[in-house]
Structure formats: structure tokens, C-alpha cells
């Protein structure tokens, strides 16, 4: 088994047998996960903020940090592994986007991340087949090439499949 570990703002894809793409402790960040049933390729981007226009320099350095740029790059990464460049036929899952208790609109970054990703997915004609988003718990998520399974772990709550 070889693991591709993604940090905040990273994106990556794998299709080799035994491959796993994983990211830790999403907090209010969201993992957009793409699965290609035809090639078995899997990919993920760890998005921290909804919109790159807030900071152009950071957008150039770490485009995966932002929902608008990260999703485009992930689809390009999947295309390098044989998936359609227009994203058609890819299965989408979303994980993360948690928030603190009693948050107000200012602190609702998790929800804004989820909405931004959905908006940009629609531009490709895509939408999430499954999602595990919101709530008040931080999630670690792993995606397995061999099975296409998306497994979420959370300290104190165990693990489950999305």
C-alpha cells in the first residue's frame, strides 16, 4: 500500500493498485473527492477557503487552497491518469466543512467551502453522489484505489464509509 498524504491546499490522484490518497483533520476545510469508475483512479483536493480572489499571491503559490482553483486542478490531475478532461462520468464525494458550536455567519467558513465547491462542480455538470459535511467534528479521510471506498475517521467517534 502506498499513501499519498495531502496537506492543506494540496491535491493529488492515484490509480496504481494499493494506492491510497489521504488527508488529516479537515476542520472547516473540505475534501473534494473524485472517483473514476472506468479507470479506478481516485483524487482529492484539500480546500481551505471558498474564493481565491481574496489573495492573488497565495492563489498563485497554493491554488489548491481555494475551492474555485483547486477543483479545476484536481480534474486536470485526474485527466493525467486517463480520466476525461471535462470531468464527465466522474463520481464526486465531499467530506469536511465542520464548524465551531454556535458559530455566526463570519465563522461559517465550512458551509461556504461546501457551497463554493458545489457551485464549481455544477459548471462541469457534476454534483456530489454522497457527502459527509458540517457538524462540529474534524474528519480525517482516506480514499482507496482498490475498492473506491471513502473512509472517514474522527477521534472519539470511530470510522465510517461515505
Amino acid at each position: 500500500m502506498s499513501e499519498t498524504i495531502l496537506g492543506i491546499g494540496d491535491y493529488g490522484a492515484a490509480r496504481h493498485p494499493g494506492g491510497v490518497v489521504k488527508t488529516f483533520a479537515l476542520g472547516s476545510c473540505v475534501a473534494a473527492i473524485l472517483l473514476d469508475p472506468r479507470t479506478n483512479a481516485v483524487g482529492m483536493v484539500h480546500v481551505a477557503l471558498p474564493d481565491s480572489s481574496i489573495n492573488e499571491a497565495k492563489a498563485r503559490q497554493r491554488p489548491g487552497y481555494f475551492a474555485d482553483l483547486g477543483l479545476v486542478l484536481l480534474i486536470q490531475e485526474m485527466a493525467k491518469l486517463g480520466s476525461p478532461a471535462n470531468g464527465r462520468g466522474l463520481v464526486v464525494k465531499l467530506v469536511g466543512g465542520a464548524s465551531i458550536m454556535d458559530h455566526n455567519n463570519t465563522f461559517n467558513i465550512g458551509k461556504r467551502n461546501v457551497l463554493a465547491l458545489k457551485k464549481h462542480l455544477w459548471a462541469y455538470g457534476l454534483g456530489p453522489l454522497a457527502e459527509d459535511v458540517g457538524g462540529n467534528h474534524s474528519r480525517t479521510v482516506s480514499v482507496f484505489v482498490d475498492t473506491g471506498k471513502v473512509i472517514v475517521n474522527c477521534p472519539g467517534r470511530g470510522q465510517w464509509e461515505v
Binding site: 492543506i8 483533520a25 476542520g27 472547516s28 476545510c29 481551505a48 465563522f107 472519539g156
Partner: peptide, 10 residues
């Protein structure tokens, strides 16, 4: 929120 937490109380 940034995922830099101390575990189950996050």
C-alpha cells in the same frame, strides 16, 4: 477550524 486540533475535543 484549520485542522490543527488536539483530538476528540476539536
Amino acid at each position: 477550524m484549520a485542522g490543527c486540533d488536539t483530538g476528540s475535543d476539536s
